[in-house]
């Protein structure tokens, strides 16, 4: 059975059970996975959770000063892929990763590579805001302290201030830095987590559905923040919301049941997707 032929046939957008049975052979990614100035290069990444093949042969570049959005129906593996980029999957004993991920030309997946500096370079913001049960100040200061990035209290104060400013939180919290971070609102908490990530001066920031637990106004603030942050950082964002992907990203990757089906400039993906499933997804037939 030729799936390629079928894919062309069904460009009209009719979905069938076979599209979702999860057992299809990999058929390759449509579009250009590479970018002009790559910071991270992923090639043929596979992830297994025990016997479950969660990510299949995914290849994708993340460029400097760009936002790459990863979209797709739930359970399609986009979060799993994101967690590979700074090896957060290491915390799950059953997870097994193969393939190659390079950060500035250095292999990340090598057993010998040290995750501590890697994660200092590739920061991550999670789906649910997870501030530490400490003061706002201590939340930001935690990263610089453990890495020894600052030597004096004054430097640390400065770093906390710049990080909060860049996360757009400074004006809201500057008078209550000593209060617990858990007392902030959801949107503020998430910006606190972003500020916490920025404070360690990473090169790449991974965002795993950073707005899914937030209200629309808080979401808009975060999206603005992302637009600003891309001046200095490479950002990979997993999102459930196609509008968000369209608003914030330069490039978009569509994941489907563990496969990366299609990558392209965001405008092209939303206006002229090549794969029928991408089209079905972006036009809202399923998701």
């Amino acid at each position: 059975m030729s799936t390629t032929a079928e894919a062309i046939d069904t460009n009209t957008g009719n979905l069938r059970a076979a599209d979702f049975d999860g057992e299809r052979a990999f058929e390759g990614t449509l579009g250009d996975i590479t970018t002009r100035e790559p910071r991270m290069e992923c090639r043929a990444v596979n992830v297994w959770y025990d016997a479950n093949h969660a990510i299949r042969e995914v290849s994708l570049d993340i460029g400097k000063h760009e936002v790459v959005a990863m979209i797709g129906p739930s359970g399609c593996g986009k979060s799993t892929f994101l967690r590979c980029l700074n090896r957060m999957n290491d915390t799950i004993p059953a997870a097994r990763v193969t393939g190659s991920i390079k950060l500035d030309g250095r292999e990340v997946l090598d057993r010998g590579i040290d995750v501590v500096p890697l994660r200092a370079q590739v920061g991550m913001v999670f789906q649910k805001p997870n501030p530490f049960p400490k003061s706002i100040y201590e939340n930001i200061a935690y990263g610089p302290r453990i890495h020894g990035l600052v030597n004096h209290k004054s430097e640390l104060d400065e770093l906390v201030e710049t990080s909060l400013k860049r996360a757009g939180l400074w004006n809201e919290v500057k008078d209550r830095l000593g209060q617990p971070g858990t007392g902030l609102s959801g949107g503020q908490q998430q910006r606190l987590c972003i500020a916490r990530t920025i404070a360690v001066s990473p090169e790449v920031i991974l965002m795993d559905e950073p707005c899914s637990a937030l209200d629309p106004i808080a979401t808009a603030v975060i999206e603005e923040l992302i637009a600003e942050l891309k001046q200095d950082y490479s950002i990979a964002i997993v999102t459930h919301s196609m509008q968000q992907a369209a608003r914030v990203s330069e490039r978009t990757a569509y994941f489907h049941l563990g496969d990366l089906l299609e990558v392209g400039a965001t405008a092209q993906i939303f206006e002229d997707p090549q794969h029928h499933l991408t089209r079905a997804y972006v036009t809202g037939r399923f998701g």
Partner: peptide, 9 residues
């Protein structure tokens, strides 16, 4: 996760 993601041991 939050702590590990910042590169803490």
């Amino acid at each position: 996760d939050g702590s590990y993601a910042l590169g803490a041991t």
